[in-house]
């Protein structure tokens, strides 16, 4: 239990710091790389939460595909590389206030609702096979809907981005 908590504290601090740097850094490519650190740390936390298949998908889809898309987006819009001073708007103090107020409300609600609730010591472990079974039986219709959604997104992206 102690080792788990030390591992959690280590990974969570990396995730939180990288997330803050993602939204505050002045370099667009650095923001993308900090986002990689956030996503990888979250993948490690998913393993701690016994979700091995979600962790694998996180690494493959997010760090693989989504980050490549982001880097393409950065380069295709010819973002000036290097330090930029106009990445954050004048409204940042208001945004900080809103985010802090939201964080205060959320943390208060969470502490109030689950103050010392523990995760089960010996949880039911669902392996990849169980996830597959569930997706293709109980959640078959949502799964097909997601397939149609991905197709629609693919066609939509092609239609939007093509030159005509």
């Amino acid at each position: 239990m102690v080792a788990q908590n030390i591992a959690f504290a280590f990974i969570a601090s990396i995730v939180a710091l990288s997330a803050v740097r993602t939204v505050t850094t002045r370099n667009i490519v650095h923001a993308a790389l900090y986002l990689v650190a956030v996503l990888a740390g979250l993948g490690a936390l998913y393993v701690m939460l016994t979700a091995e298949f979600v962790a694998t998908t996180q690494f493959l889809v997010y760090i693989g595909a989504v980050m490549v898309l982001f880097l393409f987006g950065i380069m295709l819009t010819r973002a000036p590389l290097g330090h930029l001073d106009d990445l954050t708007g004048k409204q940042w103090p208001v945004a900080l206030g809103v985010a802090t107020a939201l964080a205060a409300v959320l943390v208060y609600a969470l502490v109030d609702a689950f103050h010392a609730a523990e995760l089960p010591r010996n949880p039911v472990i669902y392996r990849t096979a169980d996830v597959g079974d569930s997706v293709f039986s109980t959640y078959l219709i949502p799964f097909e809907a997601v397939s149609v959604l991905l197709l629609a997104a693919l066609i939509g992206a092609v239609v939007l981005a093509r030159k005509d």
């Binding site: 667009i28 950065i74 990445l87 954050t88 409204q91 809103v98 939201l102 964080a103």
Partner: peptide
Amino acid sequence: LGAVLFCTGVYGVLARRNAVM
């Protein structure tokens, strides 16, 4: 941790000027 990440995201959406960010 999830709540903190969410609020960081809210700050980024409100404060950033670059659409990719």
